[in-house]
Design a protein around this nucleic acid. Structure first.
Lengths: 148, 148
DNA sequence: TCAATCCCTACCGTTTCACTCGGCTTTATC
DNA sequence: GATAAAGCCGAGTGAAACGGTAGGGATTGA
């Protein structure tokens, strides 16, 4: 019941892009060094984000990554889904597909359904824009504390 | 971000014991066949539950497993923790210990903290007693549908 | 005594995680 | 038009976890 590092790294990378939204392409190495993530590994995550349509790229010199939408229009749910495949706590709560054969008699399923809806609510209503604003605030507070 | 089968199997096993609460020890094989779980595997899970103090045992012939408390006094949180080790979505939201060094500058952490508190709320407030009652209701409905 | 039960340790094949590596293509710039 | 900076892509890898299985012990009621 853990998010893999993909989720955390990927969210941090997307927030990094959000902080520079409007400033043109941001290179992989810039994001990687800023966030302290292996460049080669981050590249894989960026590939997933690109496939999901969350980021786009420009190639060649001075190329890099950009968000396809404004930060406030990106939910963390879509980012996590792109990176982790799914945010379902068990397979059988997914819409449609792989509900196990004895779902209707599984005594744990009602719990998981309820839990999943709560989780999805949080993830769907939180946006990258919010995370970014919070992060900027947090950095300011640290700076103030450092100066005093 | 998945619960392993341990969580699901274990919850189902505990509900099975709850349904027979007060009837004396229930054998491993009874729980295993009733729930369609491998006996040898279930035994491991039961050991975890015993270590956590959720079930107790009597050995020898006609021995078996019993809940240590009444079903309504057992939260699913404690059951899942016993089986999965922790229900934290990332290590750094845990109380105290392994908060990563740059926690205070991690842009994803506020999200995870919020998410974790919502998850814990659901898991802590839901009891085995509730799951058991729901399950009994569900079985009744199926029986009615079958007869008509 | 014997059979049913729980107790324990060890193993095992598969999958996922968290990376790394090496080579390719595209493109701005000098 | 060479070159260097960037993204693109497939493959490989060591470690850990998952989801079991196997086999022998210890305990106890009949």
């Amino acid at each position: 019941m853990k998010f893999s590092t993909k989720g955390t790294y990927g969210l941090r990378a997307v927030v990094e892009l959000a902080m520079r939204y409007g400033d043109g392409p941001v290179s992989l190495s810039a994001v990687a060094t800023e966030q302290g993530i292996s460049e080669a590994y981050l590249e894989q995550l960026m590939r997933s984000l690109k496939t999901a349509g969350i980021v786009k790229t420009t190639r060649g010199k001075s190329g890099g990554y950009l968000l396809t939408k404004e930060p406030a229009a990106i939910s963390v749910l879509e980012v996590l889904r792109a990176l982790e495949g799914s945010t379902d706590v068990v397979d059988c709560v997914g819409s449609g597909a792989n509900v196990c054969e004895n779902a209707c008699t599984c005594s744990a399923r009602p719990l998981f359904l309820k839990l999943q809806s709560r989780i999805n609510a949080v993830l769907a209503e939180t946006t990258i824009g919010e995370l970014t604003e919070d992060h900027i605030e947090q950095k300011k507070r640290i700076e103030h504390a450092r100066l005093s």
